[in-house]
Each structure stands twice: as structure tokens, then as C-alpha cells.
């Protein structure tokens, strides 16, 4: 009798397989301090021992914007739909940067952390989650930069910026970007533990992804089959909506945004399932 009572209060159970969609949120919650410390580490450690320090958060997008203005605006003379190029490019870059950096870091979770993962147990999902949060902070900083430049053009120039009510969708857009980068990143990192081929593809894919997203050009300048291809990219609707909300140009459609949302949910489910499967035994293959 006593035996049966005793045997029920195990705090740790280790079994070969986990449930398919086991997020184990309770455990993640228990490790929330670790998550915040990881965020802090990622955010603080990056710019230690640099002269400009946190200024790099601004320098990166500013340099990218200037480069785009020169190459795509100045040399290639691509349309910005009558918008000031700085605002036009920056409106695409800030969200895309969030997606691209978060995605590439999450994709590298297992390989980059194998030393720690090989020694201590903690819910592995904490690591990618912390990356998503720390890059969200970076996004926040860069978004402020966008706002400053945006407000300058809005208040001090005649630029035809038309902010509208869709700005209220901003939190949704951020969550979708986070979800897409997390979902896709989890799938890729699970695959890379066994097949390193994906690491080689990754940098290339992100670069390609940027051109397949309406960042340096407005979606309206693409027609026919190409447009279909561009809009099949779930980040396209997110960027277009962001731009539409602040600048008033481009195309907004609930359908396109809904499509991105569905893709995000599907990717998240697949990502979590594969991640859960892989985290249990990746030390044997990584």
C-alpha cells in the first residue's frame, strides 16, 4: 500500500519518447529566469568591447538603408512609390532584419549550444525563445530609429506619408514575424543536427529571401506569376501591411495576411514537433 503511494510522487521521469506536441510550458515557466538571463546575455554581450557599443543597433540599419538608396534607388532607379527612399527602405528593413537575424540564430540553436546542451539539462526550447525575445529588443531599438526618421519626414517635409488605422495591427505583425522565424528556425535547427547540408544553404536562403520579399521594391511593381511567387512568401504580407500602415502605399489584404498567419501556425506546429523529437537525442548525432 505504502509502495503505491510512494511511487506516485516522482518529480522527474525520463522516457525514450515524448508526446508529439509537448510544449512543457510548465517547465519553461519554471526556467523563466534562465530565459531572461539568456536574453540579457545575448543583448549585453554582443556589443561589449566595441567603441560604438549599443550604437551599432542604429548603425547597421542606417548603413543598409544608405546602401539601398545608392544601389537600388540611385543606380537601378527602382520605384519607391513616391515615398522618401529612406523611409521606404527602412520600413522594410526593420521587420525583415528581425526575421532574418532571429531565424538564422534559431536555426543554429543545437549546433551553437552543443557544449552547454551536452552537459546540463534545461528545457532546450528556452534557448530559441530567448533568441526571439532578445532580437525583439533589437527590433524595438531599430523601430525607434525608424519612427524618428519617419516623424521627421511626416512633420518637416511635404512627403505624402499617409499613416492610417492599420497601425493598430503592428503588434500582430511583430508576433507573426517572431512566430515565422521561430517556426522555420526550429525546423531547420532540428535538421542540421544530423544533416549539416542545411547550414550551407541557410545564409544563401536568407539572402534570397530578402529579394523574394518586397523590401527594396513595392509589391505593386511585380505582376502576374512573379507576384504570386512573391506573395507565397509569408513575410511579404507582413512587410506590405507594415508599409501600408505607416506610409499608406502598397496593397493591404486580409486574405494575404490570413495566409501568412496560417503558414506561421503550421510552421510553429511542425517546428515544435521536430524540435521535441530531436532535442532528446541530438547529442548522439550532432
Amino acid at each position: 500500500m505504502q509502495e503505491t503511494i510512494q511511487n506516485d510522487d516522482w518529480t522527474i521521469e525520463i522516457n525514450p519518447k515524448s508526446k508529439l506536441l509537448d510544449l512543457n510550458l510548465k517547465e519553461v515557466w519554471r526556467y523563466r529566469d534562465l530565459l531572461m538571463l539568456f536574453v540579457r546575455r545575448d543583448f549585453v554581450a554582443v556589443y561589449k568591447q566595441t567603441i560604438f557599443g549599443p550604437l551599432w543597433f542604429f548603425i547597421q540599419p542606417i548603413l543598409t538603408t544608405i546602401m539601398f538608396m545608392v544601389v537600388f534607388g540611385g543606380i537601378a532607379k527602382m520605384s519607391t512609390e513616391g515615398m522618401p527612399p529612406a523611409v521606404f527602405y527602412l520600413s522594410g528593413i526593420v521587420l525583415w532584419n528581425y526575421f532574418a537575424t532571429a531565424f538564422s540564430l534559431v536555426s543554429n540553436t543545437f549546433v551553437a549550444n552543443k557544449a552547454v546542451f551536452g552537459k546540463v539539462y534545461f528545457p532546450r526550447i528556452v534557448t530559441p525563445l530567448s533568441l526571439i525575445v532578445s532580437k525583439l529588443l533589437t527590433f524595438g531599438v531599430q523601430f525607434v530609429l525608424f519612427l524618428v526618421i519617419y516623424l521627421y519626414y511626416l512633420v518637416f517635409t511635404e512627403a505624402p506619408l499617409r499613416p492610417n488605422v492599420m497601425i493598430l495591427l503592428l503588434p500582430v505583425l511583430i508576433v507573426m514575424t517572431a512566430g515565422l522565424s521561430l517556426g522555420l528556425g526550429l525546423v531547420i535547427t532540428s535538421l542540421t543536427t544530423k544533416y549539416r547540408d542545411f547550414t550551407f544553404l541557410l545564409g544563401f536562403a536568407i539572402q534570397l529571401g530578402m529579394y523574394a520579399t518586397p523590401i527594396i521594391y513595392p509589391a505593386s511593381s511585380v505582376h502576374g506569376k512573379m507576384r504570386m511567387a512573391i506573395m507565397a512568401n509569408p513575410m511579404s504580407a507582413v512587410i506590405e501591411t507594415f508599409r501600408y500602415a505607416f506610409l499608406g502605399v502598397g496593397h493591404f489584404s486580409w486574405l494575404a495576411l490570413g495566409y501568412s498567419l496560417v503558414v506561421m501556425l503550421v510552421l510553429l506546429v511542425i517546428g515544435v514537433v521536430t524540435f521535441n523529437r530531436v532535442e532528446k537525442s541530438f547529442m548522439d548525432t550532432v
Binding site: 525520463i14 552537459k119 546540463v120 547529442m283
Partner: peptide
């Protein structure tokens, strides 16, 4: 296995 670095 005990330290849950890998699973059985």
C-alpha cells in the same frame, strides 16, 4: 541519461 543530456 541520468543528467538528461540524451534520452534512452
Amino acid at each position: 541519461l541520468l543528467s538528461r543530456v540524451t534520452s534512452p
